[in-house]
Deep mutational scan, measured.
Amino acid sequence: RQGFVPAAYVKKLDSGTGKELVLALYDYQEKSPREVTMKKGDILTLLNSTNKDWWKVEVN
């Protein structure tokens, strides 16, 4: 499932696989259909980080 999360809630990881991955630093509950819920410690695939406030991710 793809959607947006606050950029301040995730940290980029060095995956070494060519995929950009991020680590969820905090729990986040989606507040609109365009967002996704994540739990602290989740590893997500980063799809787009051009917006400084909201990053598009895919929940694996």
Rank of each mutant, 00 (worst) to 15 (best):
E35H: 07
E20T: 15
S32L: 07
L13N: 02
I43V: 12
W55S: 02
E20L: 14
V59F: 09
L21Y: 15
T50M: 11
Y9N: 04
N51P: 05
A8F: 08
N51R: 10
P33I: 09
L25K: 06
G41L: 03
L23Q: 13
T17I: 12
Y28L: 01
N51V: 05
D27P: 06
D53W: 15
Q2T: 11
I43R: 05
M38K: 00
D42P: 01
D53N: 14
L21K: 10
F4Q: 03
E35P: 04
G16K: 13
K39E: 06
K31Y: 05
L23D: 00
S15P: 09
D27F: 04
A24E: 00
K19T: 12
L44C: 08
A24Y: 01
S15D: 12
R1V: 08
K31A: 10
K31L: 09
V57E: 00
N48F: 07
Y26A: 12
T45V: 15
K19G: 09
V5G: 01
G18N: 12
E20N: 15
L25G: 02
T37L: 03
K52A: 12
S32I: 04
D53F: 15
D14L: 12
A24L: 02
D42R: 03
T37I: 03
R34L: 14
K39R: 13
N60V: 12
E58N: 04
K40R: 12
G16L: 13
W54K: 02
V5S: 00
D42C: 06
E20Y: 11
K19W: 09
Y9H: 06
N60F: 14
L21M: 12
L46G: 01
W55T: 03
V10S: 01
I43K: 05
G16S: 14
E35Y: 06
Y26I: 09
A24V: 08
D53Y: 15
Y26S: 08
D53R: 15
K31Q: 14
A24Q: 00
L46W: 02
V59C: 10
E20C: 15
M38R: 00
S32H: 12
Q29I: 14
Y28E: 00
K12Q: 08
V10R: 01
T50P: 03
D14N: 14
E58H: 05
G41T: 02
A8H: 11
T45K: 12
S32G: 11
W54R: 03
K11G: 06
V59N: 09
E20A: 14
G18V: 10
V22S: 02
A8N: 13
K12M: 10
L47W: 04
T37V: 03
P6W: 04
E35L: 05
S32A: 08
K31R: 15
D14E: 13
Y9V: 05
F4H: 05
K39I: 07
K56R: 11
A24N: 00
S49Q: 10
V59T: 15
K19Y: 10
A7Q: 05
V5Q: 01
Y28Q: 01
T50G: 09
V36N: 02
S32K: 07
G16M: 13
T50W: 08
Q29G: 07
L13T: 05
K52W: 07
L47Y: 03
P33K: 10
E20I: 15
K11L: 14
K31N: 09
Q29N: 13
N51Y: 08
L13Y: 09
K11Q: 13
V22P: 01
I43T: 06
F4C: 11
F4I: 06
E20D: 13
L13I: 15
D14V: 13
E20S: 14
S32F: 06
W54I: 03
E35N: 05
A24F: 02
T17A: 13
P33M: 09
V36S: 02
N48K: 07
E20R: 15
T17K: 12
V57N: 00
D42I: 04
E20W: 12
L46P: 00
S32E: 08
R1E: 04
T45N: 08
Y28T: 00
A24S: 05
E30Q: 14
F4E: 03
K31M: 11
Q2R: 15
K19Q: 12
L46N: 00
Q29W: 11
L46C: 05
G16N: 14
Y28M: 01
D42W: 11
V10H: 01
L23G: 03
Q2V: 13
L21N: 05
T17P: 14
K39Q: 09
P33W: 10
E30P: 14
V36G: 02
T45I: 15
T17C: 15
T17H: 14
P6V: 03
A7R: 12
L23W: 06
E30F: 07
N51C: 09
E58S: 08
L23K: 08
G16E: 12
V57P: 00
K12V: 10
K52F: 09
W55C: 02
A24W: 01
D27H: 06
K12L: 12
L13R: 03
K31C: 10
P6L: 05
A8Y: 09
Y9Q: 04
V59A: 12
Q2F: 08
R1W: 06
N51L: 09
V57C: 02
A8D: 08
V59H: 15
Q29R: 11
F4G: 01
Y28F: 07
W54M: 05
S15H: 12
L25Q: 04
S15C: 15
L25F: 03
D14W: 13
A8K: 15
G3E: 01
S49V: 07
V22T: 02
K19N: 11
D14H: 13
V59E: 09
L21V: 08
K11W: 09
R1A: 06
S49F: 07
N48G: 06
E58I: 08
N60A: 13
W55M: 03
T50V: 09
V10L: 15
A7P: 04
S15A: 11
S49P: 05
Y26N: 09
E35W: 04
S32P: 04
T45H: 11
Q29F: 13
Y28G: 00
G41S: 03
L46F: 03
R34T: 12
E58T: 06
M38G: 00
S32D: 10
K19R: 14
E20G: 10
L21A: 06
V10K: 00
Y9T: 06
L46D: 00
G41V: 01
G41A: 03
V59I: 13
Y9M: 11
T17D: 14
W54F: 06
N48Y: 06
N60D: 12
K11S: 10
E58C: 09
L44Y: 11
T50R: 11
K52V: 12
